[in-house]
Amino acid sequence: MASHAVTDLRHHFENHDQQKDASTLGMWIFLVTEIMFFGGLFLAYIAYRTAYPDAFGAASNTLNIPLGAVNTAVLICSSLTMAMAVHSAAIGKNKLLITFLIATLVLGGVFLGVKAYEYHDKFVEHHVPGPNFDFKSEDAKHPVDPHNASLYFALYFAMTGLHASHMIIGAVIIVVLIRMAAKNRFTPEWHTPIELFGLYWHFVDIVWIFLFPLLYLIDPKNK
């Protein structure tokens, strides 16, 4: 039985339950460290947004809200397909599992593509912090200090960049999982990697759910 080698109990565990419990708890703790990791950036964001609300609002207005919204929808769908993949693995439908993993991968790819397009726009508009940075508020009546707008974009790139790097790592892992699934490595009894990856993917999704309103939708005077 192909799956036997994989489901084999590692020598230091007493039984499968213990092994699975350990892996799951490990994943949750890993996600806690991820929260703290993003937390530092969120703290910096809160500090500067409080200090320079107008500049943050004006800079935020230059983002492409429809694209951001589309991306949010794409990610939520990918979470759904991921959840379906976990379910398929649990009921032992390997073909379905592969289909949903591929769907998740494609949706993740769409997200990254849209993100790359948005980054490209920012480059073209000279909104990338650095020597070529140039920012003028769209609302000429209420100009803002370009330095402060630069801070917003620095945080925008840091936060979305860190998020995107998590997506890229996730995409690589999905490819590995698809290959494993293609070799029939997962069974209803043992599909821990799929479950754990599901947790990770949902976490990355949730981070975006916070990033989208904080970065795109903050200006109250936005029309």
């Binding site: 500067y48 200090d145 630069s150 801070l151 620095a154 840091a158």
Partner: peptide
């Protein structure tokens, strides 16, 4: 990027 640089508005 200016995040800790007072000359660029950072703290």
């Amino acid at each position: 990027i200016g995040i800790f640089d007072p000359a660029l508005g950072g703290d």
